[in-house]
């Protein structure tokens, strides 16, 4: 097993404010890694630092290649896709055009067959192909955001709080979908969540992020048995 993503001493922030204070993280190929953290811990900042959306320092290696100096659009074409927090569907574009927008960095001719593939995986989106994305429900929009990210043919999917604002049943279905993408399509996933219970179920590796620092990391079982973690994230 090899690490698809290696992060060492990653620091990032906004202007003069540093939010991430040197975090380390390994995401093994073919696994689901979860970052747990409270509001404002820096989870979104961490994903944005990995995908190059904000200035960062430290080491970020993807697929054995340093991407610390790489432009965000290049990082996407290397195989890192991000589902932003709050979905970020293009409300005035149709579902179809949203999906095609996900393939923005691609120049090959297999976009249409990929489209068909993901419509098969997300049949509800297929039914709503020519509908404007803004008219979809929250759950459908989250599905669309994930499907759209898949259109760039990522090796690594960064997923920012997909459960945000969704009913428990929908969240469960969503996590099952992510798990299936991981198991059947070999997609490596780095998931950011506050919903620890469900996230721990599908995770192979878990990190705890608190005020810009990783305070614990390990297997889901080890993390779940930690008393402090149970109190803070599992409500037990």
């Amino acid at each position: 097993m090899s690490a698809l993503l290696t992060v060492r001493g990653l620091s990032a922030g906004y202007g003069p404010i540093e939010v991430l204070h040197g975090v380390d993280l390994d995401v093994q190929e073919g696994q689901v890694a979860v970052i747990l953290g409270a509001n404002g811990a820096g989870k979104t900042t961490m994903l944005r630092a990995i995908s190059g959306m904000i200035p960062r320092t430290g080491v970020v290696d993807f697929n054995g290649q340093s991407i610390i100096k790489t432009a965000p659009e290049r990082i996407v074409s290397l195989g890192v896709a991000q589902v932003p927090q709050g979905r970020g569907t293009f409300t005035d574009l149709t579902v179809d055009d949203n999906m095609r927008a996900g393939a923005y960095v691609r120049h090959d001719h297999e976009v249409v067959s990929d489209l068909a593939l993901w419509y098969e995986t997300f049949p509800r989106l297929k039914d709503r192909r020519s509908q404007k994305a803004g008219t979809l429900s929250g759950g459908e929009q989250q599905m669309l955001a994930i499907a759209r990210a898949l259109m760039s043919r990522p090796k690594l999917l960064l997923c920012d709080e997909p459960s945000l604002g969704l009913a428990p049943l929908i969240t469960k279905a969503l996590f099952q979908t992510i798990q299936r993408l991981n198991e059947q399509h070999g997609l490596t996933v780095l998931l950011v969540e506050q919903n620890a219970n469900l996230a721990l179920d599908i995770a192979h590796h878990v990190c705890l992020l608190e005020t810009g620092l990783i305070i614990a990391a390990g297997s889901p079982a080890a993390i779940a048995s930690d008393d402090a973690v149970r109190r803070a994230y599992l409500g037990a």
Binding site: M53, P72, V76, P84, F90, D92, A101, Y104
Partner: peptide
């Protein structure tokens, strides 16, 4: 599509490359 994407949601457009 990228023009409209930028209009609708800059962050999402940027992560799309």
């Amino acid at each position: 599509r990228s023009l409209v994407a930028v209009r609708d949601n800059e962050t999402a457009a940027a992560v799309m490359g």
